[in-house]
Design a protein around this nucleic acid. Structure first.
Length: 300
DNA sequence: CAAGCGTGGGG
DNA sequence: TCCCCAAGCTT
């Protein structure tokens, strides 16, 4: 026999069980079907930035039915993207997705680019989304570090309950070290680790009995020590500008005809904050001011 | 780099 | 009820 330590965790010892688990338990999500294409993957990634899967599903279906290609979206006003975004939250994402569709139409012949650098240059696409589209849609080899993967790696490899607030160089290095060499297997690994974090290795109430790598998990082996350090910053919402913006935009989504100032004034009592919120929406390009104190979603 | 940016479901 | 959280990006 060799002197191999049977219990040591190696990258390869994680790949087979995690990918095997994914084969058995992956959810059948529409953007994972072959017919979704790169555009479907990209749309889903925008919508899933900070919004849960179950709320994205219906909006995704409507969106792809209405705008099956980037050029279809680019041909409509940005305000229509904002309206169709509905109540997914963070409506600037809708504007950025529209802008990305325009850039794809103008610069890439209407096809979602496959190169990471070109994806990264599109509005609304950062490090994570560029890697996700390149990996999921084009089966390339990229470290895909979202909140789920970061939590899985923090626990399984680093032995801590939660990753740092912001992605660190150490996390990127670890993710690259764990990535399978072959690109198709790397793409499966990316999707599988993400799904594991979403379904089993969740932020709260993780279920280690269903985890395919529980026997190798550093955090579990250490007795699942509680998170050290300051509590995660809780985002207050009630009474903030964000809440006011949400109410204002909800009014404007209701109608294609311009809305008078009085209709907007009705959503919030305090005039200073109300005006600040509306100014912010205009500055962001989410609202278009018209002559005579009227407002609408942007046509350009 | 910390702050700002929506919304709704579940414990 | 309140608090936490959900496939981040931009400035």
């Amino acid at each position: 026999m060799t002197a191999t330590t049977a219990t040591q965790t190696t990258p390869a010892s994680l790949h087979t069980p995690v990918i095997g688990w994914f084969d058995q338990h992956a959810r059948d999500l529409p953007w994972r079907r072959p017919e979704a294409g790169a555009w479907g993957v990209m749309v889903s990634e925008f919508m899933l930035q900070q919004t849960p899967v179950n709320r994205v599903l219906p909006v995704y279906e409507q969106w792809l039915a209405r705008w099956p290609r980037p050029a279809d979206l680019a041909a409509d006003p940005p305000g229509e993207a904002v309206r169709s975004w509905g109540r997914l939250g963070y409506p600037r994402r809708a504007l950025r997705l529209h802008g990305a569709a325009q850039a794809i139409t103008e610069r890439h012949g209407g096809d979602v680019p496959s190169e990471h650098a070109q994806l990264l240059a599109l509005p609304g696409i950062g490090e994570y989304t560029a890697a996700a589209v390149a990996s999921f849609a084009y089966r390339q080899r990229h470290a895909v570090l979202d909140t789920n993967v970061r939590r899985v790696f923090a626990r399984a490899a680093t032995g801590i309950q939660y990753p740092p607030n912001a992605t660190t160089a150490a996390e990127r290095k670890l993710a690259r070290a764990l990535l399978p060499d072959e690109s198709e297997q790397a793409a499966q690994w990316a999707a599988a680790t993400m799904e594991l974090g979403a379904l089993v290795c969740t932020a709260k109430n993780e279920d280690c009995t269903r985890c395919p790598i529980a026997t190798q998990c550093a955090w579990r082996l250490a007795g699942k020590p509680a998170h050290q350090g300051p509590p995660r910053r809780g985002q207050t919402y009630a009474g903030t500008d964000r809440q006011v913006r949400g109410r204002l935009l909800a009014v404007l989504r209701e109608t294609v005809t311009p809305v008078p100032q009085s209709a907007l004034d009705a959503v919030w009592e305090e005039p200073v904050q109300r005006a600040r919120a509306l100014d912010g929406l205009v500055a962001d390009g989410l609202v278009e001011p018209l002559a005579g104190g009227q407002y609408r979603l942007p046509l350009t």
